[in-house]
Structures are given as structure tokens and as C-alpha cells.
Amino acid sequence: MADIIVRPAQDDDLPAIADLRWRWVRENGETPAVTREEFAQSLAAWARENRTTHRCVVGVRETTVLGMAWLAVLPRVPTPSVSRRLCGDVQCVYVVPDERDGGLGGRLVDSVLRLAAELRLERVTVHSSPRAIRAYERRGFASSPRLLQVYSAE
């Protein structure tokens, strides 16, 4: 694990990041609506357009990207006493199957939480898979009776 570096993603990482996202979707039994190449181009364009609101960190061994985590940074309505308010959402944490259960996912989440602290985000949320709930709880995430959600109709 010491040979894996967690760092901010770079433009050169975007094809590998797209591949991780593709793999994740396929692992969950979804059928992509576009080709792998089309998705890679689309994700790269999206990441460049949204680089101020969506930050990605990656876990890399030598030149191979083994995992990713995203932090979405969202502005909140100002109050009379606080003009700049931000919150965050951890998104798309994924580690390739051969590297799971070795701590890389936790290191990725720790990295985005450090970034959230640097950005002085009021709170950070995550929508977790059942398998990862305990890992998030170990990092301070807790259920809140005040955080509600509604699913939009598709």
C-alpha cells in the first residue's frame, strides 16, 4: 500500500478515471448508452468544464490509476453573518477490485475530507453503498434526521 500515492487528479489521468467509472457502472449491471471511447471523451470534457466545482483525487501505483474519489463543492445561500458558504458531497469513490480492502478507499476519502477542510466547507455528505457505510462512519460521517432526500422521477 505504501507504493500507492494519493494525489489530485491531472488532465492526463482523465482517460483512466473514465475507465474506472465505466468499470463501476458495468460492475453494477448497468448497460452503458454510449461506447467506452465516447464516454471517455464526454467525461474528460465534463471534468474540465466542472473543475472548480468537482475535484477528483486518485490513487496511483507507478502510472496506473487504481482508485478515485470526487468532492463536489456546492455554494449555499448566504446569511447576514456569513456571505460565503460552501458544502460538499463525496461522490464516485471507486477502487479496482484487486486493490479493495487494503485501505485505498479510506485514503481517498481522507484526501477529499482534507480538501473539504482546506476549503472550509460547512458540511460534507455522502450517498454510500451498504458495503462502505462503516468506512464512512470511521471517518466521522453520521446519519442525520435533518438530512432528507426525495428521488426524482425518471
Rank of each mutant, 00 (worst) to 15 (best):
E62H: 00
P97G: 10
I133K: 08
A40S: 02
G88W: 06
G29I: 02
P8Y: 09
S42W: 03
M68V: 12
Q41G: 02
A45R: 07
E38W: 01
T53L: 09
F39K: 00
A33P: 00
V126T: 08
A142W: 01
S128K: 13
S144D: 08
R123D: 03
W46K: 06
V112K: 07
A33D: 07
S111K: 15
R21H: 07
R51Q: 15
R76G: 02
T79S: 04
Q41P: 00
T125K: 05
R85L: 02
A44S: 08
W22Q: 04
E62Q: 01
A116E: 01
S143M: 05
F141A: 05
E137C: 05
A2S: 13
P75T: 01
A47L: 15
E49L: 12
Y94Q: 13
V95F: 11
Q91K: 07
I133P: 00
V150R: 11
V112N: 06
C56E: 12
G105Y: 11
T125C: 11
V124N: 04
P75M: 01
L147M: 10
T79M: 02
A16G: 12
E122P: 00
E154F: 08
G59T: 08
R36A: 02
A40G: 01
V96T: 14
I133Y: 01
V112Y: 12
V93K: 14
R48F: 09
D89G: 08
V73I: 12
V109F: 14
